[in-house]
Design a protein around this nucleic acid. Structure first.
Lengths: 228, 228
DNA sequence: TTTCATTATATGGTATGCCAGAAACCACAG
DNA sequence: CTGTGGTTTCTGGCATACCATATAATGAAA
């Protein structure tokens, strides 16, 4: 046996057009403000195939996948439309999120290393709940990272995958969420409690805190966010 | 305005070949014992298109959707393969199931009607934990129905949808699960407790019982079920 | 007989063309 | 002006043909 003599990089495998088109379309849909009034939700196959410089075949396969994922709806001989989620559907997504992230928190208390849990502090301690007003933008990002981190700590790939899929849908509504400072302040307190529960390996408590935290968001969206 | 003079039935709309092929393939994969040794996992596009009597185009679109769903894997210029889930992935699915069904139980205590909850008795009381041996087959079906019923009681369509998708994968392993009578007996006891918690609108307890019940299954599969 | 290079074949990937249904447009009758 | 029937056009659905690559088959050289 000859030992590796070179640092071999996998040959850059060019993905199929279908796959790349899928990614491109998904990114484009995510970037689009689909909840704005008068937003164009229709996708034109031929126009897209021209823009991408490919034929309709791989494009249609990518669209079929997006349809399966629930991002677009293909109506025979009528058109292809970006799906706008209803408020009820968004609320259901947050509910599922609550179920999954709370389970993730429980798992994290069982499998995560102390170091990994300690690392959460970098995502929480940065923000003082008093001076939160001036850092709403950064906080919003850190907030997302915090929840993603907990899910990652669980070690459960499937939870990561599903919540990531949900996030794709929910992020579109995020730009509509009013981050009033009071909510942010209480949110930080919640986060600190959650970290503490994880550190003390209190699975029950961690699960409950995460669930309640996310259900608060659900409540908030239900009350204050208006779609259409 | 002319009143309806005829009883008009909506025209039976013929679904697209893509859609029907998707359903047919999914059913075929589910019916196949993919975990048996030597099972043929490869799908041949051209052969399938001949069998279905359609061209490769709609077939490929259906396959693209199945790939998105994780049922098959398409390897460029190598072939299309039915995906066999690993044991670790099955365990993750059961974990997610536990998270979702326990949340569903909690929701059910908040939104389900008394009548709907009472209806669960028909799925539980039928089986006496003493005489369970002779009715394992029926019990297995009732068991599935019971869990599906709880999820339905939550009123959360998304939970129903996701768990249904998981079931598609897990059912293939079901035929490998040894239903020894002891597990079935304890399972029935669990079910009765769950119904009671739902009836008394004890959300915390219902959630916990469902979670623990499903995690028991997880534990069992981890210990006793062998794949490959 | 074995090995390796060459060739053939099989298989998925992509492009193209035509078809059918739906919507938009238009003209003409009332 | 209005409503109705017909025609055009637009759009997605499907079939077919060809392409590129991976694999199998073949055969010549060692």
């Amino acid at each position: 046996m000859v030992k590796a003599q070179l640092e071999i990089q996998p040959i850059e495998e060019v993905q199929s057009l279908k796959s790349r088109t899928y990614d491109a379309l998904k990114a484009a849909i995510n970037a689009k403000k689909i909840y704005d009034a008068g937003a164009e939700l229709r996708l034109d196959e031929r126009a897209l195939s021209l823009q991408f410089g490919i034929s309709r075949t791989p494009l249609r396969e990518a669209l079929a996948q997006l349809e399966q994922e629930g991002l677009v709806r293909i109506v025979p001989r009528r058109g292809i439309f970006i799906v706008r989620k209803t408020k009820a559907e968004i609320l259901e997504m947050i509910t599922v999120w609550a179920a999954l992230e709370s389970m993730a928190a429980r798992l994290a208390t069982e499998v995560a290393t102390d170091e990994a849990i300690a690392h959460l502090h970098t995502l929480v301690d940065t923000f003082d709940s008093d001076a939160i007003e001036e850092h709403m933008g950064e906080y919003s990002d850190a907030n997302i990272s915090f929840h993603a981190a907990i899910i990652a700590l669980s070690g459960c790939k499937l939870i990561t995958e599903i919540t990531h899929g949900l996030f794709t849908h929910v992020r579109a509504i995020r730009q509509r969420t009013i981050f009033e400072k009071d909510r942010a302040r209480r949110s930080i307190v919640d986060h600190k409690e959650i970290v503490e529960a994880l550190e003390t390996r209190n699975g029950e408590r961690a699960e409950r805190l995460v669930r309640e935290h996310t259900l608060k968001l659900r409540q908030h969206v239900e009350q204050f966010v208006q779609l259409n």
